[in-house]
């Protein structure tokens, strides 16, 4: 089985995603976002876009969305997905830093198995203001209206919080769910 591709968008927590995947025994390879999409195509069963400082440093990351495999975007990864499909990303009225209470409104896909309210950790000033077309709202919070979104047809998902950090409750579930989605897609 092909591994999952983890795209390093230069965020502080990108390597923690790798560690999380290693801990739950999901085979993954980490690449920087400057690898041409041709080299990524066909080598992975799914793509995880990690967080990072700004969309300007996203390089080829948006192009990886066209490779026909399931994608999970985290923080900046979510912003990459939203802007690529016509949504908008702007600074929130307040940033989400540290603990955030998230309400899950749709458990389909990556949020399967979670209770309706979970405590997560976030670190972001920007947020998705307008959801892209074809996407469904999966979770929201007092701080940010679009905490998680998904396009079930394309198998593309994004979360604003960081499931990979130890302070997020049961963050591993997002990755286990994504892993299952990539295997169902084979």
């Amino acid at each position: 089985m092909l591994p999952i591709c983890l795209v390093n968008n230069f965020g502080q927590f990108n390597h923690l995603i790798k560690r999380m995947l290693r801990d739950i025994e999901i085979d993954a390879v980490m690449i920087k976002n400057d690898v041409p999409p041709e080299e990524v195509e066909g080598s992975y069963r799914g793509i995880i876009l990690g967080g990072g400082p700004s969309l300007e440093r996203a390089n080829h990351a948006p192009d990886y969305l066209d490779l026909g495999v399931p994608v999970l975007g985290i923080c900046l990864g979510l912003h990459i997905i939203a802007t690529r499909y016509g949504g908008t990303v702007n600074p929130g009225k307040m940033g989400g830093f540290g603990g955030v209470e998230v309400e899950i409104v749709d458990h389909t896909g990556i949020l399967e198995g979670y209770p309706d309210r979970i405590s997560v950790w976030a670190s972001h000033a920007d947020e998705v203001k307008v959801m892209p077309e074809g996407f469904t709202l999966l979770a929201r919070s007092n701080i940010c209206g679009n905490e998680a979104i998904g396009n079930f047809e394309k198998n593309i998902y994004g979360v604003q919080w960081h499931p990979e950090v130890s302070h997020t409750t049961e963050g591993y579930r997002v990755f286990e769910n994504f892993d299952r989605i990539t295997q169902d897609n084979l």
Binding site: V165, S166, H167
Partner: peptide
């Protein structure tokens, strides 16, 4: 408290 210094409270 922290597990790995990446997040802390």
């Amino acid at each position: 408290h922290s597990r790995d210094a990446m997040t802390a409270d």
